[in-house]
Each structure stands twice: as C-alpha cells, then as structure tokens.
Design a protein around this nucleic acid. Structure first.
Lengths: 141, 141
DNA sequence: TTACATGCAAATACTTTGCATATAA
DNA sequence: TTATATGCAAAGTATTTGCATGTAA
C-alpha cells in the first residue's frame, strides 16, 4: 500500500502523494512529471509544483528512480530491485523495457581499474520502432 | 585542419567555428556549450547563441556527437570512429573515458528481438572519484 | 553578389523556490 | 499543536529563435 511506503520514508501520506504513486504503479513505465500531472486531472486537483516536489522527495527517499533522457526530461519509475533499462522510439516515444543489463559486471571492473566508487549508471538505446519505420516507408513511396 | 572539416560538411569556415573546433580538439573531453563559450573569451568575441548554433549544425553534419547527461546539459565531443563512454565523478565532475563498450552486441540482439532499428545508445556511469572520496572522509573526521 | 553566419534580445521548456495557507500526525 | 505539504506566482537554467546586419565563397 502507498500509505505505508510513504510513512516508512518519513513522508506524510497525503491523498495527492498516494495518487501519484498509484498512477505510477498502474502505468508501470518511466513517466515525466507532466505526464503524471496530466493523469491526475479529473481525480484530484493539484499543482504541477506539487508533483515536482513529491517526485523529488520520493526520489531522495529511494522510493523512485530518476533518469534524464536525451530529450532532457526527467523520467521517474517506482524503484524495483530488478532494475532495467529502456529502448525508446525516437519517433513515437514507445518504450520497451530491456531485461538484460550487462553493466554491473563492467562497473565492478571499472571500480578496480579507476578507484572510483561507482554509484549508478544510465543507459538508453534509441531507435525506430517497427510501426514508425513502416509509416516512414509508406510516406516515401 | 578545421577548415577542411567544415567545408566537407558544406559549412562556411568562419574563424569562430574554427576556434570552437580547435578548443574541442585541445580539450578532448565532452564539453558543454557554455564551457566552450568560456574558453573562447580573450581569443574571439562571440555570442553564446553562435556557439549553440555552431554545435547544433556540426552535430547535424556528423562532426560532433551530442549526449545529454543527468545534469540535463548537452555535452559535445568531436566524433571519432572509436566511440567511447564516460565515467563521471558526481562531486568534482572529473571524466574518465571508458574504452570498452559492451553494447553493440546487446543492440544487435535487441534489434532481432524487438524489430527496432537501433540508431544509437547513451551510457554513463556515475560515481565518486578517489580524490573526492578522500576529501569527504577527511571532513567527517 | 548572395546565401549563409552572427549579435542581440526576446521567447521556450522544464523545473525550482519563496511565502502564505492548509493539513496529516 | 506543530511540522510538513500545497498553491500560486515568480524566478532559474539551458537552449532556441526572429530579425537586422555582417561576411565567406
């Protein structure tokens, strides 16, 4: 339950925060502050800054994971133990989760090699999904 | 020479563009528009928007490579055939290039699996470099 | 000469922040 | 009751753009 999740992190369990978490759980994909904000409309009235503040705090507490993509927007996901990366269509922005992550291994090697204490990594593949590729070829011919 | 590089890409070889390329060659590390702009001061007077426009055009022509990092800034590097990724200190922003890239292989597998036509990927490791780690522990006691 | 480059200021887009008010604990 | 959450408007930051002028080819 969302309420417990918030309390455990010493955050007050407000209806707005619970709704944000519920939306993120239902969508279960990386979302921007604005996407979440849009989804709240009709359910609860809240200001965008409330969404931003909630996301920031929850990220700080480790409830969420934040990643900045090449479009310069911050994407948030519920933090899971089995973290994964994404394949993103540059046309329609479709997102496909990638289960395999070959980077933990590389990270360890790098720590030994450089003396860095590695705290995280970001990875994203960009490409064109089959649907958009088809559309593009139809337009040409 | 920078002049040829620009001409080959059908860009006029202005002194400002040549200077930008020269700076990037000398620094040979990923730089933001603003960092480049700072480096030009004293050498040539130019507006920040000139830097932004030059970087944008040169990226479009394939002379540069652009990557958006977690700090939401765009970093540019001279494009090389042997592309590589970076390990970045979250404290002092030191950058260590990583030679190995395990992703081409994964990208191919993903193309087969998802039907995406993969056009690129971005990868960055974040961590704390030995120098900053030492400073931090000294401050504690 | 002429298409392209540049300066300048204003506009954008996403995000953060100060302050007064409201609410969970 | 009291620390924390929220709304609102204003500010911040990186970047883009329109238009008049300047310059490489």
């Amino acid at each position: 339950m969302q309420k417990e999740l918030l309390h455990t992190s010493a955050l007050k369990a407000t209806k707005k925060r619970e709704l944000i978490l519920q939306i993120m759980k239902e969508e279960s994909r990386p979302m921007t502050a604005d996407e979440i904000y849009e989804k709240t409309s009709g359910l609860l009235t809240m200001n965008v800054s409330t969404v931003y503040r909630a996301l920031h705090l929850m990220t700080e507490k480790g409830i969420l994971e934040k990643t900045v993509r090449q479009d310069k927007k911050a994407y948030y996901t519920l933090r899971r133990h089995d973290h994964c990366h994404h394949l993103v269509c540059t046309e329609c922005h479709a997102v496909i989760p990638i289960d395999s992550c070959p980077l933990e291994e590389l990270a360890e090697a790098l720590e030994k090699e450089t003396g860095f204490q590695i705290t995280g990594h970001s990875l994203q593949f960009d490409g064109i999904c089959p649907v958009c590729a088809k559309k593009a070829s139809e337009q040409k011919g």
